[in-house]
Design a protein around this nucleic acid. Structure first.
Lengths: 115, 115
DNA sequence: TTTTTATATAAGCATATAGTTATATAATGA
DNA sequence: TCATTATATAACTATATGCTTATATAAAAA
């Protein structure tokens, strides 16, 4: 790896620690296919809404996700401008597609609640 | 990613959590270039020998490193047979080369102590 | 304006983590 | 055999983490 583009080890360790959580790693994999609002995540994980918000907050603080308000909802997406974007894409490629989970969500009518 | 080769998210999160520590991540980057014994790591990090052993133990338990005894010393290396080997190689490529640290070690005469 | 819905923050708690020091084990060499 | 060197394990401690419930904020709808 070129020195110019190499990442700082300490900061990278911090990002990997964030991704080293089942919930956050799954969130990132979901975000790889499309943006998601908090209520969708809350429906996808057996976990309280504050827990979801706190996970998103940590990833936002690290600059790896970004938020966009759309009316009542706040949508999260991967931040393509993060210096970790390439690394994250590389590692997410090793993980199974999570599209099925959205299908289930839609079947439950929970997907639409945020559109 | 092909379903056949995709990794389990939960287990991957565990591996990423292990790499989400500055010391362990640096260790893996060092191991990417060559094997290392405990005493070399101990010289490289401002940290006690038990701390080093405990970090290595965790990575060995996860199957991402392996140990080989060579007489008095135990050398650690990346485990190429781990199902996470490819993922780990991918992410280590984003990190700066650590060769310089071995040069310093050698200059201090600490490198030879394990050969 | 009041109520509802979506999200964030605060406070608290149980568990996990990363280090320490002390000690055990195992191989080497005198 | 005994001392030395390399490594591992045990016990402990301080801090970090991930959740919970309660509450605050902000936009939309009535």
């Amino acid at each position: 790896m070129n020195v110019d583009t190499a990442l700082d080890i300490q900061k990278t360790a911090h990002v990997l620690k964030l991704l080293g959580d089942k919930t956050r790693l799954t969130m990132m994999k979901l975000l790889q296919s499309h943006d998601c609002c908090v209520c969708e995540f809350t429906a996808l994980f057996a976990m309280s809404q504050p827990a979801i918000s706190q996970h998103l907050r940590k990833m936002k603080d690290a600059g790896i996700v970004q938020e966009t308000r759309r009316g009542q909802w706040i949508f999260y997406s991967m931040n393509p401008d993060s210096e970790y974007a390439a690394l994250i894409e590389d590692l997410l490629q090793h993980l199974p597609d999570q599209h099925e989970r959205f299908v289930e969500l839609e079947a439950q009518g929970l997907r639409i609640s945020c559109e």
